[in-house]
Design a protein around this nucleic acid. Sequence first.
DNA 1: CTGGTGATTGAACAGACGTTCAACTAAGCT
DNA 2: AGCTTAGTTGAACGTCTGTTCAATCACCAG
Lengths: 211, 211
Amino acid sequence: MTTDAPKNRRAEPEDRREMLVAATLRCLGRDGHAGISVRRIATEAGVSVGLLNHHFGSIEALIADTYQRLASELTTALLQEIEQAQTPAQKIDAFLEGSFSPRVMDPKLLGVWVVFWSLIRHSEHVSQSHEKSYRAYLDLIRQLLDGLAASEGFVIHDTRLAAIGLSAMLDGLWLEWCLNPETFSAANGLHICRCWIKGLRHGAFSTDDVL
Amino acid sequence: MTTDAPKNRRAEPEDRREMLVAATLRCLGRDGHAGISVRRIATEAGVSVGLLNHHFGSIEALIADTYQRLASELTTALLQEIEQAQTPAQKIDAFLEGSFSPRVMDPKLLGVWVVFWSLIRHSEHVSQSHEKSYRAYLDLIRQLLDGLAASEGFVIHDTRLAAIGLSAMLDGLWLEWCLNPETFSAANGLHICRCWIKGLRHGAFSTDDVL
DNA sequence: CTGGTGATTGAACAGACGTTCAACTAAGCT
DNA sequence: AGCTTAGTTGAACGTCTGTTCAATCACCAG
């Protein structure tokens, strides 16, 4: 019985990189900052330590790649849900509901994200990844808000600032809920954002001043 | 010339702990997560490594203490500014202005905070510190909002949720600004929050539903 | 079947980490 | 002055870190 089952299968570089990024995400979600370790990630992926430095030059490059892939995965999932909605009002509500879905409202996900945040100030590569994905996120929200204002005939004086406000509220709610899910529910968070939209409809951002 | 200047001055435990916490903050602000290191903090404080474990049982206890002291320092500073204002409207504006003052809007401060966040899920002690200070923060905002609604005669259906919303917006704006101060200014952030208050005045949180 | 290419391995290395503890000493007491 | 107390020291220890690199081996082209 000579089942020639090779012990160490070779993989296409792209496939291997994908596996390693997935293992990195599992380690970061489980162990937080301590998950950034060639040995831990290699063990998690069932692979030798040397392979990490073979496919990525350093562990920092691995982390940066992981950041980029996760960010794009989340935004594309959100985009798909938006596209299935019809009216601008339905689109923005789909966006909000997607933002409070279990896929996003996951303490482990924040654990991963916090590690990225902590690296932004010390890694030019990670910093650029953040800026790019945040800009795309903001543009998406601006589009949604502009569409809503146009279809319902109310005024937003500075859509950019309004979009920054909504994204900040979403980020803040997500952050606080992940740090302590007991304080409020995902449904509460969704309600708070809908109230923000209600304020927008009532002219909260209609003029330059705030009187 | 026998200046009997002792090389290693003794200090009261409380004073020494304060020095060590201050050194910890400098290290965290400068080096981020890499700043959590007995050797680094000891060098920064001009002290031996053994002294850290003498005054705090472990480095984790030092971090938790640092968290608590920083949080209380920030909130008491904010409280002082609020107390100097007269009317409820002025109080809440003082709170917002204090939240966007240079003392708070400091990327280094976020660097410190992000390290704390990353430890919440893995340290029961840090987690409890967070819950306590967030609860106090929320209560402060609730008071301000209740006072404003009472004095101006408008309705907030659920003050708790409204307070969670405002705190989330503040956290989100602070976070995003610290990660990339180029996107918007502190004045922009202040304006966005004032618009949120305007929406509140216009009944964004006046009813249970959002129609 | 035979080379050759490159994906994969893991021992080796130098350095940093947190903690421990016996020795030292500064300061307050009698 | 001498004694006592406790703040302070830093070498030592074992464990972890990221990176390197020669050896190995899976797979494909010939």
